[in-house]
């Protein structure tokens, strides 16, 4: 039996230094038997690097600081510079702060829900709605959120979700994904054009979106044809060899 001469605790026979105070433990004659190692030497799970989740957390904290800190600075600057010599009111800084807060929320939800498309889309639509309604509220000249901002946002959200569901449900993913995205862009541009015209002129009119859709729909059709119209396992090299 080995004992630490300094603190007096009993140790395994093969221990050469006291694990508590580092005192050398003399090797006694005939005391070379190895005791059962209490812990494995190899450490299969040990890692010195940060996990992906830990890296995400740290990047989020740093970026959050970079976004949130300026809020206090602009509020303080605005508070002490606006309202004449006495200061004491807030104007432009409210708009900046609101944009920064919404940017922080984009970041927060994006980092935490990055793996789930649908929750991230829905939360981003919600944050964008909050951003726009805030900007509309702070803008004293125009009242545009409910007439223009919200319809555009809802249209975008619906198109994104439908596009996602199509991609999710389709069994064989390939060129049809590109086709679906192209159709979604075209539909969104048509909707955007119509909503702007309703806001400006009071009725549905299509102008520039007809041209862009005219260009995009054939491209989408080409993708769908490539995916559904041609054989599976198409050997492009053989088909187009020259």
């Amino acid at each position: 039996m080995a004992f630490c001469p300094r603190c007096g605790v009993q140790l395994d026979n093969d221990v050469r230094f006291c694990p508590l105070d580092g005192t050398p433990i003399p090797l006694l004659e005939g005391d070379s038997t190895q005791t059962l190692a209490p812990w494995p030497a190899a450490d299969p799970l040990a890692k010195k690097y940060l996990s992906a989740a830990e890296v995400r957390d740290r990047v989020l904290i740093i970026l959050s600081g970079l976004i949130l800190l300026p809020i206090f600075i602009v509020l303080a600057v605005d508070f002490y510079t606006t309202g004449g010599s006495e200061g004491g009111s807030l104007s432009w800084s409210l708009t900046v702060s609101w944009i920064l807060i919404c940017s922080f929320l984009y970041l927060l939800f994006g980092f935490n829900l990055y793996h789930a498309f649908l929750p991230v889309t829905l939360s981003y639509v919600g944050i964008t709605a909050a951003l726009l309604i805030g900007l509309d509220f702070l803008d004293v000249h125009e009242d545009w959120f409910f007439n223009l901002g919200l319809p555009i946002l809802l249209a975008l959200g619906i198109i994104l979700v439908m596009n996602y569901l199509f991609i999710l449900k389709t069994r064989r993913k390939g060129y049809n994904v590109f086709g679906s995205i192209t159709v979604s862009i075209a539909v969104f541009l048509l909707t955007l054009d119509a909503l702007i015209m309703v806001y400006l002129r009071g009725r549905i009119l299509f102008s520039w979106s007809l041209l862009t859709s005219f260009a995009l729909f054939p491209i989408a059709l080409y993708f769908f044809l490539l995916h559904y119209g041609l054989r599976r396992n198409l050997d492009l090299g053989r088909t187009f060899h020259f």
């Binding site: 605790v9 009993q10 140790l11 230094f17 694990p19 508590l20 580092g22 812990w39």
Partner: peptide
Amino acid sequence: FRRLREYGLPVKIETNTPKEESWR
């Protein structure tokens, strides 16, 4: 554990600390 020894209690120690690590 030194305190426990002072109170007359025998103490047996086991640790997972690598043998090459210095002790303070």
